[in-house]
Nucleic acid binder design. Structure first.
Lengths: 258, 258
DNA sequence: ATCGCTAATTTGCCAGACAAGCGGCTAGCG
DNA sequence: CGCTAGCCGCTTGTCTGGCAAATTAGCGAT
């Protein structure tokens, strides 16, 4: 059984000892996380198709040079995201795509690690276009002082940094987070984690092809002001406009790329 | 160390020959599932508060009379749902509520196993009121023959059974599933699993207090017809009306209960 | 052809051990 | 006296090896 290195680089050195491979693993990342990442990207990228069966635990664990328990815990993580399902005798099989939890931050990250499907990005924006304007309306009706403060802080950070920097993308994400949070609806806040990840990945994708032509701050400021003023209609409209513009940017970036 | 039975009576499975194992659990359900269920309900119900630490793996595994590996895999499941986080030396601590994945079907089930929070139910309906009308609009624009067939089949099942039966609730769920599916947007389909679970639990909650006073079939039929006809405006309006009515029923059921 | 039984294969679970990471304590130093 | 660096011990992380359970596939009898 061939051995597969779990960390990205290193194709030159023959893997002799586990200690060596462990040193290449970034410090905070647990081994099972690396395994889950490896298998997850393989599945999401299509290298392993739905319906296919992963080779047995013993064989696969040995191929990755990890213990069976670590491998099993990694598979358990994937099971929780709906990517695979394990049954005795049948083995662990890759689930059909409609069972995947596409809104899970990890799955999103794996999906964007390769060349993301344009249709998938369009779908993500469609979801944002449904949820975020409605959330902005609710936020305008329910926001309190802390919510406004959080929005303003995120906006200030967006002004300070640009979207080309990691800090800028984080601020963008914080802004959308703050809006969702201001709805005071726990289920929407849960969606915030997914939508936030989608925002980050799509903006990064935009940056990949060319510099962003439009300053995003005014659009965000309009949303913020409308919510702070308690104007539900204006908040919804401003958020809708913001997402439309972001979609335009992303779409043209995709066209420019290919 | 006291031992806690893990049994989760399902009451629907025929009493098979049970191997005299330590802790009886219904067939098909894996041990780690029972552990995750036990810990999950304890956390979601508030018996273990956010910030608190679970007793160590060794102690807890022994208390439940399971091996440490099975216990660890259960904890890994909870980690995937955002309920806990494990760090060496610090132990596994319960995450704050806004980190929980409240849309996960299991988490929803655990939340509804006790007395569900009325505010939580209101939030779920708010989410449905945002997503499903918009989805109905998209469905009306994009549905194909198979989508219409699936909707009609679910509707027929709703007519055959009542919402008081398990089959009826399943049909209801299939209907909403079919609508989301007809959008041909993968991310919305992902939400379908969560929303479907929410629909099932809230309808069951309605039934708990009194018989449903209103026949839900005409409302659903209006949605189905509008989508089949390709009338986006009518589909959106019909779905909005449906959810409003369902919310009314649930609200009055909650008022009657307490 | 159908049913029931057996065997084989794969995951599920168990037991014990050691490694790694990390929080806190303590001793040494300025 | 305050502060920092290093040690200690606690908790999770991983490894090893083995056995049990479940379920599919094949086979044989009816």
């Amino acid at each position: 059984m061939r051995r597969v290195p779990l960390d990205t680089e290193d194709a030159s050195i023959e893997p002799q000892k586990r200690a060596e491979r462990r040193s290449e693993r970034s410090t905070g990342r647990r081994l099972r996380g690396a395994i889950a990442h490896y298998l997850g990207t393989a599945i999401v990228s299509g290298a392993i198709r739905p319906g296919e069966r992963l080779t047995g635990e013993v064989a696969n664990a040995e191929a990755l040079d990890v213990s069976r328990s670590a491998y099993r815990e990694a598979v358990r993580v994937l099971t929780g995201k709906g990517l695979v399902e394990s049954r005795t005798k049948a083995g662990t099989i890759v689930q059909p795509r409609n069972r995947w939890n596409l809104l899970d931050p990890d799955v999103l990250a794996w999906a964007f690690s390769g060349e993301p499907d344009p249709a998938f990005i369009r779908n993500l924006f469609e979801l944002r276009a449904i949820v975020e304007p409605a959330a902005a309306r609710l936020a305008a009706e329910r926001r309190d002082k802390d919510d406004i403060k959080a929005m303003r802080a995120a906006l200030a950070n967006m002004r300070r940094h640009t979207l080309a920097t990691e800090a800028g993308r984080l601020a963008d994400r914080q802004f959308h987070d703050a809006v969702l949070q201001a709805t005071h609806n726990d289920t929407l806040v849960t969606l915030s984690a997914s939508i936030g990840a989608a925002v980050a990945w799509t903006t990064q994708f935009k940056q990949r092809t060319r510099a962003l032509p439009r300053d995003p701050v005014p659009d965000h400021a309009r949303v913020s002001d409308a919510i702070a003023a308690g104007d539900a209609d204006a908040a919804e409209a401003a958020m809708r406009a913001l997402i439309d513009l972001a979609l335009d940017d992303t779409r043209s970036a995709m066209n420019a790329a290919g």
